[in-house]
């Protein structure tokens, strides 16, 4: 019997909301949005955690300007505080080394992180999910069923279809969806908003493509000054205002 599952509820007992940022395609900005969402909430005085669940390409610590190895430990492992956000990542253990993992390894690593991390009292914990709705997303739904999903999409045709499938799957899994947001908006847009409306999911807002973003990564001060961050801050307020509203929309 695996004892770790028994400890998870306890470890998350002081955590208010758990919001997982997901999108079925890679490269649509999940990590930058997750990290910025956590930072925006921390700036507003919330106690916020950020768990990077992209085990093969962790990058939240890069966005928030962190580094180094091995968090402090006492009765468990303490999150690393970056710009006011309590963060946890496999990168704090593996550094730059690449650790290829298959399904069972991914589940084990998730269980281990959830069982040993001492989040303490948090208003919200942001989970940054890897691309797709595979092992991690399924494990999050199974192990932490109160997790609310924030679906991220872009206007690209190759993304829209996969976000649509993601909604269908989350509905089938009865996973709560807090809403949908658009990233990398250039001119026009509206595709993600239309998809949200058609799926019965709240549209939380659009984040513009911001050429200033790349140079601001790793520097929370500069990140806060970008148009990108302004839009994420508005989405953060939208999500914060929707406490207790996330439900699985009716299946379509």
């Amino acid at each position: 019997m695996d004892p770790r599952a028994a400890a998870i509820d306890d470890r998350l007992a002081g955590v208010g909301r758990i919001v997982a940022v997901t999108g079925s395609k890679g490269g649509i900005g999940k990590s930058v949005i997750s990290s910025s969402l956590a930072l925006a909430w921390a700036d507003e005085g919330m106690a916020v955690g950020l768990l990077d669940l992209d085990f093969t390409s962790p990058s939240d610590h890069v966005v928030l300007g962190g580094g180094g190895r091995f968090p402090t430990e006492e009765f468990g492992v303490d999150p690393v505080v970056l710009a006011g956000v309590r963060t946890m990542s496999v990168a704090y253990f593996s550094g730059d080394a690449a650790a290829p993992m298959r399904g069972g390894d991914v589940t084990n690593t998730l269980l281990e992180l959830l069982a040993i991390t001492r989040w303490g009292d948090l208003d919200a914990l942001v989970l940054d999910l890897p691309p797709g709705l595979g092992d991690i997303a399924l494990d999050v739904v199974r192990l932490v069923p109160r997790t609310e999903f924030l679906l991220l999409g872009t206007a690209s045709r190759v993304v829209i279809g996969s976000v649509q499938r993601a909604v269908r799957l989350l509905v089938e899994l009865r996973a709560p969806i807090v809403g949908m947001a658009e990233n990398l908006r250039r001119d026009g847009g509206g595709e993600v908003e239309a998809l949200a409306a058609g799926s019965g999911v709240p549209f939380l807002g659009a984040v513009p493509y911001d050429p200033a973003l790349e140079d601001a990564l790793g520097d929370p001060g500069r990140l806060r000054e970008t148009d990108f961050f302004d839009a994420v801050r508005r989405i953060g307020r939208e999500v914060a205002g929707r406490a207790g509203t996330a439900t699985s929309p009716p299946g379509r």
């Binding site: 190895r69 496999v90 253990f93 593996s94 550094g95 084990n108 690593t109 281990e112």
Partner: peptide, 23 residues
């Protein structure tokens, strides 16, 4: 120490002695 905290990180530091694979 990394393996101690997260045993799956053995995939980063251990290789098959036969063929060198991390898989």
């Amino acid at each position: 120490e990394a393996i101690h905290f997260l045993p799956e990180l053995s995939h980063a530091y251990i290789r098959c002695p036969g063929c060198g694979s991390p898989d």
